[in-house]
Write a protein that binds this DNA or RNA. Structure first.
Lengths: 228, 228
DNA sequence: AAGTGTGAAGCTATTCACAGCC
DNA sequence: GGCTGTGAATAGCTTCACACTT
């Protein structure tokens, strides 16, 4: 049993036979990708590590380091082709295809995510929603009908589901994760304020809002104590 | 103008005249805090760095290192008092008091967060909600009435608001942040898939769901390419 | 002249290992 | 004997600086 919270600690090798980049580097690549697409929409065709860093909040050095972990995408003296670089990063991140997602837990947050159309733009398609509460089963949300947990395994197989979003209470998170995993899902986005333990070969990303609020509160506390 | 995404990179000093701990250490403290409260609810009175690490996903070494950055809370040969340690970490994180929060953007996600009662348990009280869209102003959500953005500054002063949660579209994020900051708010939790630039003295935490999905997709892509 | 790609240096974070205290 | 607190060692990440390419 491997223990995950928010990402792997060890460096990972890339699909395209490339070198190594840590987990935090992947987040930066995802931001570069999004920024490059915005540049493309604005009709820009060429950029630089410095410009891309400026827009994403990192140094040009960092951008170049992240990119060269997977190959050589730029032209010395000229810069990076916006379209080509976006496509290359897309290949690294697996964004050439779309990913099928189920939402487990159709409460307030789950329903809000079901209604959010922005994921589709990023290549994530919510194909089904589940809940353990009979009162919620059968309800419509975001164009889908909430299904019983018993149907999860069948849907995962039939619709080739890749990822599950857990929007269940903390006490239900581990059971929901296990249901998803035994249905064959290998990637979880966990919104519950609880740690989820998963076997090797399954990845978990935690969205821990109370921790992020705590981080803000800490910084404000610090600041106020310095100011008096 | 300082640029923020997800947290400061430099070590920070603690309110209680303590030593230094990086931003990621604060997240771990927040998790220790939550776990200690769960232990307290179960009636446990004593724990160890090893046990606390086991429950939060870190090593005992890491737990001790994080704690000693702020003081000496344990008893050699015995362990840590659950209640005392929770209180000490609470003081460090600023959890002795409650924090007043406003939600800017009363769409699906903002409304879901308004309805979520879990924040109160963690010491965060949502005191008002705002939206720029006249169609949403006046609606009820989570016991509050959505107000116009023009009222933000007055409410921040009157209700002593500490933090703002931004649940607006990407294109509106920077303007919403600036409105919050000029009203006197110094901590932002940004759900919009866009970078927000803030002046020195203001903190931003980014909740970037598409980046987290991208991280999962990357790991699945990797795994599949290794397996063939 | 401009900007990439990358060794080397510098810095931060984590783990090791153990002295000291209960 | 058990567990904390912490120097020392290790590992990982970021920045520096520059050779090289267009």
């Amino acid at each position: 049993m491997e223990e995950h919270r928010g990402g792997a600690r060890r460096p990972v090798s890339a699909p395209g036979g490339a070198r190594r980049l840590a987990s935090s580097g992947i987040s930066r690549l995802a931001l570069y990708y999004r920024t490059l697409r915005e540049m493309e929409e604005r009709g820009e065709s060429l950029t630089s590590s410095e410009a891309l860093g400026e827009l994403t909040g990192y140094s040009g050095d960092q951008v170049r380091r992240d990119l060269t972990a997977f190959g050589s995408f730029g032209v010395p003296g000229t810069g990076y082709p916006v379209k080509g670089l976006r496509e290359s990063i897309g290949r690294i991140l697996g964004k050439e295809r779309t990913w099928n997602v189920v939402i487990i837990g159709a409460g307030n947050l789950g329903s809000a995510l079901l209604a959010y159309s922005g994921f589709r733009l990023q290549g994530y398609v919510v194909v089904a929603a589940f809940d353990a509460d009979p009162a919620r089963i059968g309800r419509r949300a975001g164009g889908l009908t909430v299904q019983a947990m018993e149907e999860l395994a069948g849907v995962v197989k039939a619709k080739r589901v890749d990822l599950a979003v857990l929007t269940v209470p903390a006490a239900a998170a581990q059971a929901a994760a296990e249901a998803a995993i035994s249905a064959g899902i290998e990637g979880l986005l966990n919104f519950a304020p609880a740690r989820v333990t998963v076997p090797d070969g399954v990845s978990v990303e935690a969205v821990d809002l109370s921790v992020q609020l705590d981080r803000l509160a800490f910084r404000l506390t610090q600041r106020q104590s310095v100011e008096g």
